[in-house]
Nucleic acid binder design. Structure first.
Lengths: 115, 115
DNA sequence: TGTAAATTACGCACATTTTTGTAACCGCCA
DNA sequence: TGGCGGTTACAAAAATGTGCGTAATTTACA
């Protein structure tokens, strides 16, 4: 991800949210604070490296907050910041939109204008 | 992009919208039908190849409609399907969300819960 | 009384995979 | 000849996975 400076907020937002993991992590963090290993269990196909990288990215973007509790067994948890929580409805809306378009694709019908 | 089958609509939607170009193309197509060369002019940094690939992807996803008008100077144009148009407000909302979080980051303030 | 193992959340180096760019070529038309 | 809208082969760059190492502390065990 090149550090291209852009004036376009959509482009900036997509730089953070693009890819397979960011929205999925947000989705799981919706349930409340989670530990690193919880998130790996939630999504078994993410590698530990990717998970740290993505979490750092989300942290830097102000979407996720990382808390490192000192002590044993080591314990770090991640939860959504207010900004992250404000993002949730948008992500859900995206899911709804997709389901809608899928349904339409499955239902033979002329593509009519609904301007 | 591996052809992973997923039950999650958010993941599916992001498979189409991830990356630098999809949302930008949607943004420019908002203005109405555009030709290939128009889109290249709108966004001078997209390569010829990427533009075709991304347009094909959006077409397959049912977001963009390609129309090849036969005749004199060749003319192909792309415009949003109804599904694509339904996506526009979500993309705008994403831009707004980003501007909001940026503003917050610029305004020193305690991270308070706004559950 | 040691000491080795297990746990958690990583970091690092290296390898592989995927994405993207470059440049050349094509058919169509004027 | 030149522009439009591509495609294809090849190369560069970026993303992602793999496996090993680490710190701190408790437990297991001999």
């Amino acid at each position: 991800m090149k550090d291209v400076v852009s004036a376009c907020p959509i482009e900036e937002a997509m730089r953070v949210l693009s890819g397979r993991w960011p929205t999925l992590l947000l989705y799981y963090l919706k349930e409340g604070p989670k530990r690193f290993s919880d998130l790996r269990r939630d999504n078994p196909t993410v590698s530990h490296r990717m998970l740290t990288l993505e979490l750092r990215k989300l942290e830097q973007a102000g979407i996720v907050r990382r808390t490192d509790h000192p002590g044993y067994p080591r314990r770090v948890d991640y939860d959504l910041t207010p900004a992250g929580r404000r993002l949730l409805p948008l992500i859900d809306a995206l899911g709804d939109w997709w389901e809608e378009t899928i349904t339409i694709r499955r239902t033979p019908q002329p593509l009519s204008e609904a301007a």
